[in-house]
Amino acid sequence: MNVFRLTGDLSHLAAIIILLLKIWKTRSCAGISGKSQILFALVFTTRYLDLLTSFISLYNTCMKIIYVGCAYATVYLIYAKFRATYDGNHDTFRIEFLVVPVGGLAFLVNHDFSPLEILWTFSIYLESVAILPQLFMISKTGEAETITTHYLFCLGVYRALYLFNWIWRFYFEGFFDMIAIVAGVVQTILYCDFFYLYVTKVNAVQRFQ
């Protein structure tokens, strides 16, 4: 555990909780892509199956349970509790165009051809592109509420911090995981355009357009 890893995890946690609280407090999920949230629930489910097979640390177990629980709570709020406010007409990204190729890639490029390892690899690849329905939705409507942009910022910063974590681990532990690193770089790049807009516009205008 190093400072980049810890702040990355906390940033990820902050993003998840910001989104949950935003939906809960405003009683609305307008502007939020339910499809991205379904993909994140799928990411956490397939990645954290090792909760059932191995114990790593109390921190690890607690965070995994919180991430999975929050992901499903978010999906529940969007598709059940506050379904009337869900902006389905603008959430039109076809997620099969992500899930199918990512599934194929996980079968072809992985560390080991075993069910758990393939599902873990699938989750890493899928996470790198899971935000696309949300970004697509924002580009379609042309705007996002400020709190939604804070959510996206924290979510993007998390993987960027993990990149520094991996550099740290390579130098000090000789550890590297090429699958995670390449997917992490892709994931961070997808947020770059958003980061630029966030820094230049959100804090100045308080309205993201």
């Binding site: 790593i56 640390s57 690890n60 560390h111 080991d112 390892e117 974590n165 550890f175 699958i179």
Partner: peptide, 10 residues
Amino acid sequence: DQNLQQKDEL
């Protein structure tokens, strides 16, 4: 392969 060891990252 060390990547097949327990995955401690989230």
